[in-house]
Structure formats: C-alpha cells, structure tokens
C-alpha cells in the first residue's frame, strides 16, 4: 500500500504541475486587469497544436516550439487589443462572457485549421520510463516538472525584482494610483496578456507528448487551471502554483484511495470546503470593500 501511495503522489505532482502552469497564466492576467481570462486554456491548446503542426511539417522540435510560443503570444496580444481593451470598464460578468466568447472563437479557428482529430507530439527525450523507488514516471514528466519550476521562478523574479514586474503588480493593487505614478496601464495589460499566452503555449508544448491535444483540449485545462488559481487565492501567482499542485495530488489520492469515478467530485468538494473556510482562497489577500 505505501508503494502505491508513493506512485499516487508522483502522478499527482506531475498532473498538478500542469494545472499549476495553466493557473499561473490566470493569475498573471488577473493581477494586471482584474479579469479572469477564460480563454487561458485555449492558449495552452494553441501552443500545443501549432507546435504539433510544425513538427508534422518537418520542423525541428526546438524551432517549432519557439515559433508556436511566439504565435500564441501574438494571439494573446490581439485578444487584448481587440476584445479586452474596447470593453474597458464593463462589468465582471460581461468580461467573463467576452473571454468565454474568445475561447469559443479560438476553438472554432483551431477546428478549421487542424480538424477534429487528436494529435500527439513526440516525447522530447524518449519513452523509456524512469524508476523512482517503487514508482515510475516518464522522462516527459520531468520536462513538465522542470519547465514548471523554471517558469514559476522566472515569473516570481520578474514580478518582484524587475521594475516592469513591480509596475505590473502595482496595477493589481490600485490601478488609479499606478496610473498616477506614471505607469502606462494599457501597456501593462498587453504585457500581461502576452506573457500569459506565452506561458500557456509553453505549458501546452510541454504536456502535448503526454496528454495529446485537439481543438477542444483547452476546455478541461482551463477549468482545472482556473480552479488552481482560485484555490491559491486569485491574483497570487505562487498561490496558483500551490493550488495546482494541491489539486493534482488530491485528484490522484481521491482516485487511488476512494473512487476513481468520483475523483472530480472529490476535488471540487475540497475546493468548496476551502472557499467556505477561506473565502479568498488559501493565499489570497483580503481586500476591504469600498462603500
């Protein structure tokens, strides 16, 4: 039994790293704009599908990955410029609908470009499983874990050590004040969208050899990433990472120890419980309401 639990944990952390990467994108955009971007999962899908298409066309993997990420960043910028900026000042619900509309639109584009089939990316360093005591994992999982760790560190350093990063954080605390001290909020907004689109694309490319991809793959990933960001306290990038890992481990343990059929219900039950006791997530900052 302990051996099994060890494998459950390894599985949970791998899956959790994936949720964390998607959740991080949610947190970044929320930070800059107070908008939850429900098209975040579609960024992941676009990155994966573009890379797969380029590799299939004979490109080397590294070049395909870079170009796919760059293209997804462009999509993120376009989305910000033509859908988010014009709707400035709309209600929370209206922006939610806009990003949901964007998600459906991007799915529609992917459907026309690549059809309905599932596609796989070849694993970066082979398919031979690695043994970790009694547990096994794929080399690709190490890429996901390593990639997640690297990206999370970079984002953390960027937000806390660079001037632009600090400016981005300032927008999340108080947009008017940020503007008053000379931060161009629009530029920050574009930066946030470009950055999270890029993060999403990289996440998509890293996981595509394990999970495959199709035009609809973004729905599930977006949902799990959103949950990760919320559990961690939305707007806190490191909280999103913790939330993602927690969710992944919980799903694996729920499936392994209780019931694999009800594992999603178990995970969401946990999310509800967290929110009932910590209404702003585990690591969210409490905000006083203005009257």
């Amino acid at each position: 039994m302990p051996e099994q639990i060890f494998q459950f944990l390894v599985t949970g952390i791998t899956v959790g790293a994936l949720y964390a990467l998607v959740g991080l994108g949610f947190a970044l955009i929320y930070n800059a704009s107070d908008v939850v971007n429900f098209a975040q999962g579609e960024f992941v899908m676009l990155g994966a599908m573009t890379a797969i298409a380029l590799v299939a066309a004979g490109w080397p993997l590294a070049l395909a990955a870079i170009v796919a990420t760059a293209l997804t960043v462009v999509v993120g910028l376009l989305l910000e410029r033509f859908a988010i900026e014009p709707a400035w000042g709309a209600s929370v619900v209206a922006t939610i609908i806009i990003t949901i509309g964007a998600a459906i639109f991007l799915r529609g584009v992917a459907l026309l470009l690549w059809g309905k089939d599932f596609h796989a990316l070849p694993p970066f360093s082979g398919d031979t499983p690695l043994h970790l005591g009694s547990a096994t994992l794929l080399p690709q999982s190490l890429w996901v874990l390593g990639g997640a760790a690297a990206l999370v560190t970079l984002v953390h350093l960027f937000l806390n050590r660079t001037l632009i990063g600090k400016a981005l954080l300032a927008c999340s605390f108080n947009r008017a004040a940020a503007q008053l001290v000379g931060i161009n909020v629009n530029v920050m907004l574009r930066l946030a969208y470009g950055l999270s689109a890029g993060l999403g694309a990289i996440a998509g490319i890293l996981i595509a050899p394990i999970t495959f991809s199709s035009y609809e793959a973004g729905i599930m990933l977006g949902l799990k990433g959103f949950s990760a960001a919320i559990v961690g306290g939305i707007g806190n990038p490191m909280g999103a990472v913790a939330g993602g890992l927690l969710l992944g481990v919980l799903e694996a343990l729920g499936a392994g120890l209780i019931s694999s059929g009800y594992k999603d219900a178990i995970a969401f039950m946990f999310v509800l419980m967290v929110l009932f006791f910590e209404p702003t997530g585990l690591f969210g900052h409490k905000v006083a309401e203005r009257v």
């Binding site: 859908a83 806009i98 509309g101 964007a102 459906i104 639109f105 529609g108 459907l111 026309l112």
Partner: peptide, 10 residues
C-alpha cells in the same frame, strides 16, 4: 458554427 458563435458573443 463555433467561429461565428464565439465572434458574435464577443
């Protein structure tokens, strides 16, 4: 259908 649906919503 999806393309038009999403576009209209936005």
């Amino acid at each position: 259908e999806m393309l038009i649906h999403g576009g209209l919503l936005m």
